[in-house]
């Protein structure tokens, strides 16, 4: 297994606020990883650092063994880092197919023509029925799928998915989990931010927990949910221990 993404001492300071302090992480190829933590812990900040939306204050992030340094966001996408946003950001006046085609055209990783790649991504995300609808007409659940479809159309080696299940009903969550699994089967490593603990423990092989910009735990789902730091920072005390 080769390492896809490696962060060493990743630190981000906004003015006087330390948003991310000395965080280390290693993601191996082909896995599904989780990233959890309370609101404001720095999950989205970490994704913004990996995609180059913010520059690092110190530390280093390497992708496929190559330090990303100050590489522009669009270049990072072209070498294989894709992101699905937490708040869906569709191109509202374009159709679903056009939205996804933009990803397919510029990602520059897939084989075949942009429209073939786009169609394949649309099938993977289960969007065939709405391919010709404008993005502004879609429901929240469908927009989440569009985020994923557009990101995978760029042919990423790594997909950063920021809360893909937020706002979805239980059956949509099941579909999304299936979709993420099939993305992984096509060879893409996934790093998932998610609040739905059931979804996280179901799909992730390894979970990182951050709180107030620091990594507080890392391990398999079982290890993480039983870790005392994680329980106090994020999950809360089990009911019986409060009662006791």
């Amino acid at each position: 297994m080769s390492v896809v993404l490696q962060g060493t001492g990743v630190t981000k300071i906004f003015g006087g606020l330390t948003a991310m302090a000395e965080v280390d992480f290693t993601l191996e190829e082909g896995g599904i990883y989780g990233l959890i933590g309370p609101n404001g812990a720095g999950k989205s900040t970490l994704f913004n650092l990996i995609t180059g939306y913010y520059p690092l204050t110190s530390g280093d992030i390497a992708f496929g063994g190559r330090s990303l340094g100050t590489m522009a966001t669009y270049r990072r996408n072209q070498i294989g880092i894709a992101r699905a946003f937490q708040i869906s950001k569709p191109f509202p006046a374009l159709t679903v197919l056009e939205n996804v085609t933009v990803g397919a055209m510029f990602g520059g990783h897939g084989r075949g023509s942009a429209s073939d790649i786009a169609r394949h991504a649309i099938r993977t995300a289960g969007l065939e029925d709405v391919a010709h609808r404008h993005a502004q007409e879609l429901t929240v659940g469908t927009l989440r799928k569009l985020e994923i479809a557009r990101a995978i159309a760029t042919g990423p080696k790594l997909l950063l998915a920021d809360e893909p299940c937020a706002g979805l009903n239980p059956s949509e969550t099941v579909e999304m989990v299936a979709c993420l699994r099939s993305v992984r089967e096509q060879g893409t490593t996934i790093w998932l931010v998610e609040h739905d603990m059931r979804a996280v423990t179901q799909v992730c092989e390894r979970i990182f927990v951050i709180d107030a910009g620091r990594k507080v735990a890392e391990g398999t789902p079982d290890e993480v949910v039983n870790d005392p730091h994680v329980i106090s920072a994020y999950l809360g005390e089990p009911a019986e221990s409060i009662l006791a």
Binding site: A72, N77, A82, L94, V102, F106, G107
Partner: peptide, 24 residues
């Protein structure tokens, strides 16, 4: 052309366009 798609993506949402590999 590809440039046309890129420009439309910029019009619709410039930050997302960047994230999808468009050299905005």
């Amino acid at each position: 052309s590809k440039i046309g798609y890129g420009l439309l993506a910029i019009r619709e949402d410039e930050d997302t366009a960047k994230m999808l590999g468009v050299p905005t």
